[in-house]
Amino acid sequence: MVKDKRIRVLMAKPGMDGHWRGLVIVTQALRDAGMEVIHGGNMAVQEIAQAALQEDVDVVGLSIMTGNAVGMTEATVKELKKAGKGDVLLIMGGVIFEDDMPTLKKLGVDGIFTSGTPLQEIVEFVQQRVGKAKARD
């Protein structure tokens, strides 16, 4: 069987917050760019890790609007590592405090895209970072 060369992405909102616009728009943009995107909606961090594993994704995208980006990322990364998916490309958008960005990078977030980012920038970032790795598979 030929392995699917398409980039696989899980998009989710860790926790219960209902500000969903960014998640939906980015999901659509990545799909338009030919990626296979699983739209998870609101998920517990454990569910995110399980879905990342089961769906064998290359990318996990988190949307966080509540102000607790650090807490949620810390918990998500811990669960991803536990599930053996610590190596996914981790991207994030939403309301992210500038002061938190170094901490988030340190936690393992590869790309942070706050509101107003042109969608193409996100698409290209994912393609460049994952696309090459996929092409080598």
Binding site: A44, V45, G67, N68, M72
Partner: peptide, 10 residues
């Protein structure tokens, strides 16, 4: 437990 990380935000 499902509210971990959301309490007191927003």
């Amino acid at each position: 437990p499902r509210c971990e990380g959301d309490v007191g935000f927003c």
